[in-house]
Design a protein around this nucleic acid. Structure first.
Lengths: 249, 249
DNA sequence: AAGGATATGATTTTCGAAAATATAGGCGGG
DNA sequence: CCCGCCTATATTTTCGAAAATCATATCCTT
């Protein structure tokens, strides 16, 4: 899903509040459809809904307490984002995963993220620097507090997402940012897929620190190289630890 | 809208049949929602529905003969593609146009199309060469037959789209092809916007011919340079001839 | 027993009414 | 006279029933 002007793309950045908490039927100002889109997206990204799993309306209806139509609207939106697979006249299912798709998403992310980092470094102002530094700081704080299995911690996820978002936020193109956000979500699903099998997370803290420094130092070539390595090694890890889940198709 | 695997992206390539013709309520095998999505997309791209125009359900209901829900699903999908702007609780409207958006779309197209051309030239096989040559041939035939105002001719539009699609079709990434297709649609809307004011179309035939030759000759640097110029001069023409329509916002 | 048509059940897809929300116009108070 | 509140209307959003479609099992024919 691309974006008209700069409308949604953002909402996938706001993270999610724990479903266990007492929550209003829908968040303020949002339609039920938008809320369900958001909740479904989270469940798919975190693999609470497994790749390839059929999404039957009866089940969803009970789980989310919305009607056919509302659910259908949410599924349509997610299909446009590539997280749901629409099979005409035969319903929806969680988008399947595959080695090939992982490679495509990784390549596309590198292509776009590299460009956006360059533009951000060139155009970023003081506010941008502050955003990059502060989001990294928060991320590190969370990592210190609980250094194991960061993906399990929703707070780490949000902070991680916001740091990477901050890095490219000054690029000046809402269009490309929206594309980037979608690819980020699709990649994050693969990270979750492998998180359960990865014995121990590698030291991402150092990588993030280095990326931040290169960005603030306005060294585009170094920043780009670090980001590309960051993205590709993450994908390689997924392929290594979740490889057995990628050949189902 | 991005794509899950490789599902839709294609359908925006199939063109449209004249609405005046006697057509079945929906095309074979498609849901009504998918059909309406397709028809609405065409009307937005061709500016039959003007940029910024509100899309009220009563009006759409009469025009397309579908119910609220079905229309809503179509609008959701188009919002994900960036052709429709969803204003929470306040309905939908055709995505507005602006100079800034035109620049963003153009830049994004260059970034992605350039990469895909490179990959296609590197990976394209005999079938790819044949597709490139034959789609260009058809395009030239149509241009000879009726050399004025090509955008008015639906056949030219389809042929033009298919030629550019063929050029990048061997890139190997359904993900990037889907992104490219969306950006192409958004750019085509701007072309339509200026078509009514452009005194005479420039000689695109020569440019297409040169691009084809560079591609078949496996000269990526030249092909990339030609494509970039092609995209940017088209956008410049839009800005020049439809500039007065881009400052409404 | 194999193949194919048909009936049955499960599931998706569509519809229009009803509820929720926004917009516009009028009324009263400052 | 202008501003804010309140009511009336217009519009969107949601719902569950009904229609359409697909999947499965059964039965008939060869």
């Amino acid at each position: 899903m691309l974006v008209g002007a700069a409308s949604w793309g953002i909402d996938s950045m706001t993270g999610t509040m724990p479903d266990s908490a007492i929550r209003p039927r829908k968040e303020f100002g949002k339609t039920i459809a938008a809320d369900i889109t958001h909740r479904l997206r989270e469940e798919i990204i975190t693999c609470a809904l497994a790749p390839g799993e059929p999404l039957r309306f009866d089940v969803l209806r009970e789980r989310f307490g919305a009607s056919f139509t509302t659910l259908r609207e949410a599924l349509t939106a997610l299909a446009a984002e590539g997280l749901v697979d629409a099979q005409e006249q035969r319903g929806y299912r969680v988008a399947p995963v595959s080695r090939r798709d992982l490679v495509e998403v990784t390549d596309a992310r590198v292509l776009i993220e590299v460009e956006l980092i360059r533009r951000s470094i060139e155009r970023g102002d003081d506010d941008w620097e502050i955003a990059v530094i502060s989001t990294l700081h928060r991320l590190k704080r969370i990592e210190q507090r609980d250094p194991e299995h960061p993906l399990r911690d929703p707070e780490w996820k949000i902070a991680h997402r916001q740091f990477h978002q901050a890095l490219v936020s000054a690029c000046g193109s809402a269009t490309l940012l929206a594309i980037r956000a979608e690819l980020f979500d699709r990649a994050e699903r693969y990270r979750h897929l492998s998180a359960n099998f990865r014995p121990r997370p590698r030291d991402k803290a150092g990588e993030h620190q280095a990326i931040m420094q290169a960005a603030i130092a306005r060294n585009p070539d170094l920043a780009v190289q670090l980001i590309e390595t960051h993205i590709r090694t993450t994908a390689d890890n997924v392929a290594a630890y979740a490889g057995h889940l990628l050949d189902t198709e």
